[in-house]
């Protein structure tokens, strides 16, 4: 299955070595060592780049498929460009080929001592499983990282942007500075409901991937989230925070979906 898709992408990217990093339902993510047009880009990692490719879906009508691929790719690039403009940490776009569903972006993240990529998930797991020391797992370093993630998500929401798929693997740590990735499900909304759902998704994700200490992690995440709403940079942050947290309580009771039908 994957081989077939790699052949498909290789047609559009001749002479580019590709290494599969991850695969989702919608897209494949590759890593490569070649920059498409410049060997010394103004980026922190100059020899690693990420390519996200949305393959054709054979079960869709070809015309609809082309339109969907193009629109989703454009939407994602727009979201990422806007984040860069707002100064919210996220990978910046190097190149995009909308009709073919290809996005080149900056590589972010470091290697952990055990060789894994420094996503929040792997980083916390490293503390939980490799170091396996409760005082370290709940230490100030982890606390500060969680608060920083909360601050980042708060900033995103205060700009009326919704990530849509907040999980601990979609947050990378670049030297304990969190970075958001994967904006395939992102949208724009000022509604407290959507922000609360976004937070709820993260809360559930933390509960299922880091069950042991998830209540601490979530507490710190929300602490950071509250902190940024109080900053002077954003007006009426306090009011928005109260609304979102009230909605979050509602969402916790009923789940992510608004209606119980279907």
């Amino acid at each position: 299955m994957t081989d077939h898709i790699i052949q498909q992408v290789q047609v559009h990217l001749p002479n580019i070595p590709l290494e599969v990093v991850s695969q989702g339902a919608e897209a494949l993510v590759f890593q490569t060592s070649v920059h498409p047009y410049y060997s010394k880009p103004c980026l922190p990692h100059q020899d690693k780049f990420i390519i996200k490719f949305r393959p054709r879906k054979p079960y869709r009508h070809p015309k609809i498929d082309a339109a969907i691929t193009k629109n989703r790719t454009i939407g994602e690039v727009k979201f990422m460009a806007k984040l860069t403009k707002l100064g919210i940490k996220a990978p910046s776009v190097i190149l995009a080929d909308f009709p073919n569903g290809i996005i080149w972006m900056e590589y972010l993240g470091k290697k952990l001592p055990n060789g894994d990529v420094s996503s929040l998930k792997n980083w916390l797991w490293y503390y939980e499983k490799v170091l396996a020391d409760e005082s370290l797992c709940l230490g100030s370093e982890v606390q500060q990282a969680c608060i920083n993630v909360g601050l980042l998500i708060g900033k995103l929401h205060l700009n009326d942007m919704i990530h849509g798929d907040l999980t601990s693997s979609n947050i990378l740590l670049e030297d304990s500075e969190p970075v958001l990735i994967d904006f395939g499900l992102s949208s724009y909304s000022g509604m407290a409901e959507d922000k609360a759902v976004d937070l709820y998704v993260l809360e559930r994700a933390m509960l299922s991937t880091h069950s042991k200490y998830s209540d601490h992690y979530v507490k710190w995440l929300l602490q950071g989230y509250e902190q940024i709403h109080g900053s002077k940079e954003f007006r009426s942050g306090g009011k928005k925070l109260v609304e979102t947290l009230r909605k979050l309580d509602e969402v916790r009771l009923r789940g992510r979906k608004r209606s119980m039908l279907g």
């Binding site: 454009i74 460009a81 860069t84 403009k85 910046s92 909308f98």
Partner: peptide
């Protein structure tokens, strides 16, 4: 560096 990133983003998104 920042201007480069933002300008390339704007060029990529031109017309979309």
């Amino acid at each position: 560096q920042l201007l480069t990133r933002l300008a390339i983003g704007a060029c990529i998104l031109r017309g979309n």
